[in-house]
Amino acid sequence: MDDAALFRDAIGFVRPLPEQPPPPERPRPRPVPRMAQRDEADAASEFRRALTADALEAGDALSYRRDNVPPRMLQRLRRGEFAAQDEIDLHWADMRQAEAMLREFLAHARAQGHGCVRIIHGKGLHGDSSAPVLKNLVDRVLRHRADVLAFHSAPANQGGTGAVLVLLAAKR
């Protein structure tokens, strides 16, 4: 007798298991929207390029005045003829912190009735990027605020191109 027959005699009758349906297939991976991802990346890089296209350099002076502000006021601001009633130093803050600090500072200064404030942003000589990040942030934020009448980089004895003097609208 062969081994298989001996084994069957020793085990006896074996009832076969009922047929089981096959296990479900692994779900297919979700499709990857490669074109949408590429479009997003292109849009983000275009946005970054647009932000840096007109970016200020380290030695550039900030300068802006609203149309209803006489040019003479900007000249006086440039020469430092207005006394800064308060100041904030944004050195060592990252962009998000600096923007929050700047907005809070301007709101507080206006609430206090200050007409002129100084913002120290630094010249941007020691940053990782080629353009001074905080200087460009300050320029962008100040241009979009309705309570800012004019601003200009401070005279050399008040910080030069590393600081900006800001004229604020009177509190209503």
Rank of each mutant, 00 (worst) to 15 (best):
D60H: 05
P33R: 08
P27D: 12
H114Q: 10
A61Y: 07
E87T: 03
L102N: 02
R145Q: 09
T161F: 15
Q97G: 03
V32P: 13
A61F: 13
A109D: 00
G12Y: 10
A150I: 01
L6T: 14
M73I: 15
F47W: 07
R103M: 06
A55I: 01
Q158I: 05
Q75D: 14
R143K: 15
I11N: 13
P71R: 05
Q97A: 12
M101V: 06
C116D: 03
P33I: 00
V32K: 07
E19Y: 08
R8L: 07
Q97S: 06
R79E: 12
M1Y: 12
A5W: 08
L168V: 01
E81S: 02
I120M: 06
E99T: 01
P155C: 10
L74A: 05
R30W: 08
P21S: 08
P27F: 00
S129Y: 13
G122I: 04
L106E: 00
M73W: 14
D89V: 05
V148K: 01
P16H: 11
R78Q: 07
H114Y: 11
A163G: 03
V138S: 04
R65H: 02
L62R: 03
V69M: 02
H126A: 11
D60L: 04
L165P: 02
R49M: 08
V32D: 08
A107V: 14
D94Q: 03
A53S: 15
L125T: 09
R28F: 02
A100K: 10
R15N: 07
G115R: 11
H91G: 06
A44G: 12
N68P: 01
L56E: 09
I119L: 02
P33D: 10
Q85M: 13
D3M: 09
H108I: 11
G80T: 06
A163I: 05
G127R: 11
Q158Y: 10
G12M: 01
A111W: 02
R140Q: 13
P29L: 06
L62H: 02
P31C: 05
L149V: 05
F151I: 00
A98L: 01
A4M: 15
M101G: 00
Q85Y: 02
S129R: 15
C116N: 02
R145V: 03
H108W: 05
L17K: 14
R30I: 04
A36C: 05
T161H: 10
L149C: 03
S129E: 11
E25Y: 09
L17D: 14
Q112R: 11
D2C: 07
R49Y: 04
P33G: 13
M1H: 10
D54T: 02
A100G: 12
A10L: 15
A84E: 08
L51K: 07
A61S: 12
Q20K: 13
H121Q: 12
G113E: 08
V117E: 03
L6K: 09
R66D: 10
V14H: 10
R34D: 13
A169G: 03
V141W: 04
S153T: 11
A107E: 09
G122M: 11
